[in-house]
């Protein structure tokens, strides 16, 4: 596995607030990742440090095998910010042309095709665009850059469902033909759940969980039934969330559950079911806060 990005014990605080707290993660080549967290979890600070826009108080960022020194900007990286700084007096096609100068693998054919796909008028000025169309300009740049590491921060902000789907579909299509490492930072898991291979769940500046989405689907489950039976069942298991109403209760758990354990539990009257991902993450984040 070739490492495209490695982050070691990265920290950054604003005054007394720890925005990023000794965070480590690694991205392999040719993989799509998700960075999930609520607003204010520290995602944007982390991404700004990875791309050299801000400097960590401690720790290390290694991009394509090269440590990033203070003041340096990594090459072969395309970072599409949530809040872009494109000149608002420029036309869409000018912004695309300007962006192309910074990406050696730029595909201008793709850029102009995507203008059509996403129904963007290239003659419009940036200041005339809606928030969603603005996001799309960034997304076109991110896709057409074909950068070996492409990072999108909240790429579907302001977009309607149809356009969101179009974006993710296009991303998958282009990724299939031109594999590269893509990191999607968002607070909405459901939309990226089938698109990404692995997710990092971030809260309070740390990674709560780093796992393949498929694995989470396999390992996250709820048990419901009699409170007493649940209490004995969850013993020694990782409980993400639990609530009870007198005699009955429900618990969200995480871990491997063998067929035998499952049928045993069921024979004791427990009902075992899956958990929707978005719910699972919400519980996980809640749990993370409780542990502080």
């Amino acid at each position: 596995m070739n490492s495209v990005l490695k982050v070691n014990h990265l920290s950054k605080s604003y005054g007394r607030m720890e925005a990023v707290d000794s965070l480590s993660l690694e991205l392999a080549e040719h993989t799509i990742y998700g960075l999930l967290g609520r607003n204010g979890a520290g995602k944007t600070t982390l991404l700004n440090m990875i791309t050299g826009g801000m400097f960590p108080d401690g720790g290390e960022v290694v991009v394509h095998g090269r440590p990033l020194h203070k003041g340096e900007v990594p090459t072969q990286v395309c970072y599409i910010r949530e809040k872009n700084f494109y000149p608002n007096g420029a036309r869409v096609r000018d912004v695309l042309q300007m962006a192309s100068a910074f990406h050696p693998d730029w595909d201008s054919g793709l850029a102009s095709r995507l203008l059509g796909t996403f129904k963007l008028n290239p003659r419009k000025k940036m200041r005339q665009l809606s928030r969603g169309m603005e996001s799309m300009v960034g997304n076109i740049i991110g896709l057409a850059s074909r950068a070996p590491l492409t990072i999108f921060d909240e790429p579907v902000l302001g977009l309607d469902v149809l356009m969101r789907e179009k974006f993710y579909r296009t991303l998958l299509e282009d990724y299939t033909e031109h594999p590269r490492t893509i990191l999607l930072s968002t607070h909405l898991i459901d939309e990226i759940a089938t698109v990404v291979e692995q997710v990092f769940i971030m809260e309070n500046g740390s990674i709560l969980m780093s796992e393949e989405v498929e694995q989470i689907r396999e390992r996250a489950y709820t048990v419901s039934g009699s409170s007493a039976v649940i209490a004995s069942f969850v013993e020694g298991r990782r409980v993400i969330h639990s609530e009870g109403y007198g005699q009955v209760g429900v618990a969200v758990l995480y871990g491997v559950l063998s067929e035998q354990e499952r049928s045993e539990a069921e024979s004791r009257g427990l009902l075992i079911d899956g958990v929707p991902l978005q719910k699972f993450f919400a519980y996980l984040i809640e749990e993370g806060q409780g542990n502080e």
Binding site: I32, R169, L172, Y175, E197
Partner: peptide, 17 residues
């Protein structure tokens, strides 16, 4: 796998699996 991934908007690695 590519067609499947495209049709259902699923990460190709998942389809391959």
């Amino acid at each position: 796998t590519t067609q499947f991934s495209r049709m259902f908007q699923i990460n190709p690695a998942t389809v391959v699996k």
